[in-house]
Design a protein around this nucleic acid. Structure first.
Lengths: 176, 176
DNA sequence: GATGTTTGATATGATGGATAACAATTATCA
DNA sequence: TGATAATTGTTATCCATCATATCAAACATC
């Protein structure tokens, strides 16, 4: 499918002395005749990926003041809802491989948002614990997500549209 | 959101002499009590990403005999629908940055699926041309996608469900 | 107690995405 | 026309994500 987006940000205008404003394409209509997506616009995977990038991008900007990535946010959320779990359990439910989960946790722990505690029952495993600060950050993040991110989606799709979308995506994620 | 999936493939069963079959968890119910996703299952971004990974995974396996990634497939499709375009135009419409598009094209060209032709009007740019072989591969890929990939989605969502999903995702991709 | 498994961790490689810079070419306009 | 700027494809490079193999410590099983 090819994806990416999020780029094409810079102004690209010459910045040497007095600006020149040579063409001013007004729109992304750089191409005289727009390239046709054709069958691509009916390919679910393609549209799915483009939508996902957009949603992540918006999520990131909404939670920007808290400096949380989607992955970090989901970990905090999971820790809050599942006290007493170890790294393997949390990583597995998020589809993160244990080796890759280590550095993710390192960053959260170094920011004082969670802690690794040796389990008394199994001294191999680390119980993951949300700190006070972590709970606070999570609470603020949730508010931002609801008030800015999800509300915008509601606005675009309608509350029932959003429900429909969610259930279809859940079905794909589970049964496909 | 955290994502990944696609992993957890290996058997993990001991393979030393006669197998032992120690526990046989029967299901991925490794955790005595399943970890609760909680609010995560209502986060559109999270579900969106999980669904996207599933769809890409299936796409990849359906088109496996032709050795085409989603990105490569979308390029071939676009070239077929838009003859006479150069690298920048194709890359832009797919949201691929020009530098990253180079190696993608290299691989397609080295497999004889497309060619770079110097434009007579602008000797800087390369017109991208589908070869005969490229057209053949694309045709077969399309058939596989329709008969195996998209048909499975239709089966899961229903033809109208698929339409609904597509239009909502398109709306997000465009207007969000 | 010997053997194998699990847990967290490290090292490492593959891949995707992003930026800077460059030569060749073209466009602009003074 | 000639100087200056912009565009095109490319290379190099960096960063993040993803994936595999391996390891020591701790546990489980028999």
């Amino acid at each position: 499918m090819a994806d990416g987006a999020k780029n094409q940000a810079g102004s690209s205008q010459a910045r040497t002395g007095q600006a020149r404003i040579p063409k001013e394409p007004a729109e992304p209509a750089s191409e005289t005749q727009a390239v046709q997506l054709g069958e691509l616009s009916d390919l679910l995977g393609y549209v799915l990926k483009r939508a996902q990038l957009k949603v992540f991008e918006d999520f990131l900007s909404c939670v920007a003041p808290l400096q949380l990535t989607p992955a970090q946010f989901s970990v905090l959320l999971l820790l809050d809802n599942n006290p007493g779990r170890n790294q393997t359990e949390i990583a597995n439910t998020l589809g993160i491989l244990r080796p890759n989960f280590v550095s993710l946790l390192d960053s959260l722990e170094s920011r004082g948002l969670c802690t690794r505690v040796r389990s008394p029952h199994d001294r191999r495993s680390h119980i993951l614990v949300l700190t006070e600060k972590g709970r606070g950050v999570l609470a603020r993040a949730k508010k931002l997500v609801v008030s800015k991110h999800e509300s915008r989606l509601n606005e675009l799709l309608g509350s029932d549209g959003r429900e429909t979308l969610l259930s279809m995506l859940t079905k794909i994620a589970r049964e496909f």
